[in-house]
């Protein structure tokens, strides 16, 4: 099962390495990882996507909790939540026909073209990981040059929060 775990982490040097090291050391999977400061400068918020059976996920959350610099964490996928990932994708677009096709596709996925040259388009798409996968799939016909994805970030719906 896929899980999205959000972690509030003391903003100290080495704390990120500790989280990543834990996954490597204990053989857990990381499908994606994002980390950035929050409105509170002393804390970072880290979101990681992992998969495993219930027993593995239980151990992952327990071991994350054990890290001294982990302030709080939440398995977002356990309840209603919103998740988003951002993707920048550069595609070859030379002929008029090609350029029209890419534009149409971007529209359908509510993508924005954020850079244009005579030979390329760079498109920004935001959505769930599935949606980004689907967009890549849809562009398979045209020549994809480069893909940069942010990894998933998420937040729970409604009153539920991950704050101090």
């Amino acid at each position: 099962m896929r899980h999205i775990i959000s972690v509030l982490l003391e903003n100290e040097s080495g704390s990120l390495a500790r989280v990543v090291g834990l996954f490597a050391q204990r053989g857990y999977n990381i499908d994606s990882l994002t980390v950035a400061p929050t409105d509170d400068a002393t804390m970072s918020r880290l979101t990681l996507v992992t998969h495993g059976n219930d027993q593995v996920i239980e151990q992952i959350t327990k071991h994350l909790h054990k890290l001294i610099e982990v302030v709080k964490l939440q398995d977002l996928s356990e309840s209603a939540h919103v998740e988003r990932e951002l993707m920048l994708i550069k595609v070859k677009a030379t002929s008029n026909e090609q350029r029209d096709e890419v534009k149409r596709c971007a529209d359908i996925f509510r993508g924005q073209i954020i850079d244009v040259t005579a030979k390329t388009f760079t498109i920004q798409v935001v959505g769930t990981s599935d949606k980004l996968d689907a967009f890549i799939e849809a562009l398979k016909g045209s020549a994809i040059i480069e893909v940069a994805r942010s990894g998933v970030s998420g937040i729970s719906r409604g009153e539920k929060t991950l704050t101090l």
Binding site: S13, G14, A17, R18, G21, Q25, I68
Partner: peptide
């Protein structure tokens, strides 16, 4: 040493 000892300590820190 922080890197080497990370998987075998409860915690490690350095003085800044």
């Amino acid at each position: 040493m922080l890197g080497i000892s990370r998987p075998i300590v409860k915690h490690n820190m350095s003085v800044r």
